[in-house]
Design a protein around this nucleic acid. Sequence first.
DNA 1: GCAGTAATATAACAGTTGTTATAAAAAAGG
DNA 2: CCTTTTTTATAACAACTGTTATATTACTGC
Lengths: 182, 182
Amino acid sequence: MPPKIKVQASDIVEAALALVREQGAEALSARAVAARLSCSTQPVFSNFPNMDALKEAVVSAVYARFQEAVQAELSRKAMPSYKAYGMAYIEFAKEEPHWFRFLFASARSSQESDVNHWSQMLLMTPVNGERAEQFHAAMWIFVHGLADLVLSGRLELTREEISALITDQYTHWYYTEKEDAT
Amino acid sequence: MPPKIKVQASDIVEAALALVREQGAEALSARAVAARLSCSTQPVFSNFPNMDALKEAVVSAVYARFQEAVQAELSRKAMPSYKAYGMAYIEFAKEEPHWFRFLFASARSSQESDVNHWSQMLLMTPVNGERAEQFHAAMWIFVHGLADLVLSGRLELTREEISALITDQYTHWYYTEKEDAT
DNA sequence: GCAGTAATATAACAGTTGTTATAAAAAAGG
DNA sequence: CCTTTTTTATAACAACTGTTATATTACTGC
């Protein structure tokens, strides 16, 4: 019978997660993971067919953390709103820049990740009918652009300024729609 | 006296530019540049102290192309507008995805690149006074977010849909401001 | 206690990278 | 023609990467 398992797949993913979090995507290598677990590189390749598979697992794990963070932020509010959603989105990007970059650099198809993510918000649009999807898209685009610009340092904003920008974006749409309706 | 110079700094930058354009940032290596110029790696290091310096030069060169492309698009219009600007911005991202990524992945400080780039548009805002800067920022954020989402494949849009989104973003601000004024 | 089994460890292979030491070659002045 | 100067070429070094062949180890049923 074989010896007890010392290193499990979850340990490997967790170590990889920490590596990416602290040093970014390019620090993720078989040897770096092994060093963090104080083992050889062998367990990495017995738990995963190759490094790409591990990377995929790490992407999923980061995505789970991302959703957790956003949901935690939302549950603190009485009712989820686009503003709370956007703030949580950008907070995550600011607090975990390497994770955020890693997540959105892995260019998956449009089925995955934040499409599903945002789609739950479609029920919350303040506008009705066919304009709902356009409002939804506009908010998504704006929040994502804001996150990217803040993350890259091209825009330096306080939390209050970010909050004000999202509010503005929201209300400009909202008011215009109301004007149109009357 | 030395032999004639065969490989000049500009040749190296140009070769690097083509490499990044065709295969992305990670394809930029001393040997790859040399291979494209059919020379050894030596001229690379006699013209640049190290690869980071070359990379910087390439960033500047890509940025110049970016500005050229946007200006060319703007000069086709009777008067530059945020819409034309945004469309040119996103067109560049779609047509030269590797260049666009390379440019905006090089996280420089906020003095550089598209801050100056966008700042020339500040004169074109349709709103007045202190709201001008907020309108300006909102357009920048929206267009950049749109470019990034389209580039990564998370949003699949035709040129017409992109155009409509920018128009919407613009008019929602514009109309709301007009309402406020009256 | 021994043998079989599977999870690790060691170490190597082949590839990549930036960078540099050394050699070759080419142009021009003497 | 030959020496000097400097660009280029060859080749190597050291560090890194993914991956794998081979050994070692620890456990368990017998």
